[in-house]
Amino acid sequence: MYWNWKMSGIALGLCFFLTVLIIKPIGVSTQFVIFDGIAVSLFKDDISYKDESTKTGYASSNAYLNKSGGKYAKAVSNPINYSFIFVVAMFLGGFVARKLQGANDSCSMVPDVHKRRFGDSRGMRVLLAFIGGVLVLWGARLAGGCTSGHMMSGMMQTSISGYLFAVAAFIAAVPTAILLYKK
């Protein structure tokens, strides 16, 4: 079973506060770009290279990795950095939490909401999860952040981008979820 709302909220609040207290606000979606960059760098040398003339000492043939003085290009060349390892460790945290939760909780790849609407169709679920993934990360990168970086970290700091991002995300998500999954 999951924690109740109060325990859940306190735990989330402490995660966001402790990270900003010790180092910086939480963000996740940038690391999908860094992962892509690392993957491409196995085949393409100019995706990240040393360049003394930039602010970070790195540059890229890709305009996005090259922005802000080669900030992302540097992360691609040095994957052992705070933000990337943070996301890798999140994966481990999910793994351990699930193990401690006990085996009686079901962990089917087909959620109940999906079953009610589309039946036990695994192919359809994989397709929806994949399409959702494309839209979520495309949107998150265009917005410059996701639910963690904009909505949680942003609204914690009263940032205008955080509030407007959250409004836009819910304006799209609530009607879509109701149309797609409510009987």
């Binding site: 999140m90 999910g94 959250a166 995300a169 998500a173 609530v174 879509t176």
Partner: peptide, 27 residues
Amino acid sequence: VMVGGLLLGFGWAISGFCPGTGVVAAG
């Protein structure tokens, strides 16, 4: 930020995941 928020919202509702929770769920 708002156009991206809308796109993310569509994908969030379709899949039931956002970037962080997708990583955790895979774990």
